[in-house]
Design a protein around this nucleic acid. Sequence first.
DNA 1: ATCAAGTCTGAAACTTGTTCTACATTATCC
DNA 2: GGATAATGTAGAACAAGTTTCAGACTTGAT
Lengths: 211, 211
Amino acid sequence: MTAEVKAVTTPASPPLTERQEARRRRILHASAQLASRGGFDAVQMREVAEAAGVALGTLYRYFPSKVHLLVATMQDQLQHMHTTLRKRPPAGDEPAARVAETLMRAFRALQREPQLADAMVRALTFADRSVSPEVDTVSRLTTAIILDAMGLEHPPTAEQLSAVRVIEHTWHSALITWLSGRASIAQVKIDIEMVCRLIDLTSPGKSPEKS
Amino acid sequence: MTAEVKAVTTPASPPLTERQEARRRRILHASAQLASRGGFDAVQMREVAEAAGVALGTLYRYFPSKVHLLVATMQDQLQHMHTTLRKRPPAGDEPAARVAETLMRAFRALQREPQLADAMVRALTFADRSVSPEVDTVSRLTTAIILDAMGLEHPPTAEQLSAVRVIEHTWHSALITWLSGRASIAQVKIDIEMVCRLIDLTSPGKSPEKS
DNA sequence: ATCAAGTCTGAAACTTGTTCTACATTATCC
DNA sequence: GGATAATGTAGAACAAGTTTCAGACTTGAT
C-alpha cells in the first residue's frame, strides 16, 4: 500500500440533497441495467428516464448527454472495480506481471457483462471535448488502478507515467477490438502482456543497457 | 523494400461500372470535404448526398451507415498516406526510430486537417460489429505502414506482430486523446516513442536478457 | 429494339437524441 | 408561514440518421 492515491472521486461541485443523490443513483442504475441488456443502443434516454422514474428534462439536467451519462456510468463501475481489486492485490513478483494480472482480471470482469462494457467503452471513445473533464476522471481512475498494481515504493518517474499511459491506451484499444469481435481474448492477453514489458523497461536501476 | 505487402486494397466484391465508380468517388470526396470543415457532426448524410449529387437512398446503398462512410473515407486517406510515406522512407538507423518517425509524420499530416481526423477516428472507434470488415481493412493498412517503416529483412515473428498491434493501439488511442484535447502533441510524441521501444525488445538477436 | 432486372431519384415517414415550454413541487430565506 | 428562486414534470417540438416506396432511368441479354 505504498504511493498514496489522492481521492480520485468526483469533484462534486454543488452539494446534492438526499433526494437528488437518490435520483442520480437511480439514473445510473437504470443506465447500467439497460446497457447490460443491449449495449450502447439499448440505452435510450426516454427509457432511462422512465426506468429511473424521472422526467426526460431532469435526466438531461443531471447528465447533459447520453455520452455524459454513460461515461458517468463507467466512472461508477470503475470505482467498484478499484475497491474490489484493492481487496485482493495481484500476486505476481514483478510489477509487470502484477499489472498484467490486474488488467486481465478487470478484463474478465467486463467479459461477464459484455454489453455493458460495450456501451461504456463506446461512449468513452466517442466522447468529444465537451466531456473531457469526465473522461479525464475515468482516465485518472484507470491510472490509479495500474499504479496500485505496480505497487511502487517511490512516486513514479516521468518515464513510468508514460509507460502507464501507453498501457492505458493499449487497454482501451484492445478492449474495443475485442468488443467489436476483431480480436480474441487470447490475443488481448498477449498484447497486454507485451505492453506490460514497458514497465520493466522503465523501472529505475533495472535495465543494464541505455543509449 | 523487403517483406512484401500483399495488396491491402478493398476486396471489391461486385465490379462497379464507371458511373458507379464515379459516384462512389464523389461521395467520398464530399464526405472528406464536409468532415474537414466541421468534423464528425458536419458530415450529415443529407448534405453528403446533395454535395455528391446523389439521392439519399443511393448514398445508403453505397455506404450503409454514416460510420461505414467515414471508415471508408479513412481507408481512402490512409491509402494516400501509405503511398506518400513510401516515397520518402524514414531515415533513422534503428527500426524503432523509423517507426516513431513515420507515425509522427502521419500525425503531423492529420494535424493539418484536425477536423477530418476527428471525424474519421471517431467513426473508427465508434464502429460496431457491422463495420468489422471495413475497420479490419483500416487496421491492416495501418499494420502495413508500420511494418514498412520497420523495414524488416525477414517476415515478422509472432512477437513482433504483437508489438505492432500494441503500437497500433497506442497510436489510435493517443490520437483520440489528442483530438479531444486531453493530451498535447508533445505528450503524444513521448508516448509513441515509448511504445516503439517494444520493437527493439522484440527484434530477434538483440536483447541480451531473457527470463 | 425490347424486355426484365437492377439501380437511382425524390419525397415522406420513422426513430431517437436533444431542446423548449408551461406548469407543479420543493427548498431557502426572511 | 409566505415570498421567491431553483428544481422537477409532462409533453410537444426539433434535428439528423435511417428506412421505405413509387416511379424513372440504365444495363444487359435476347
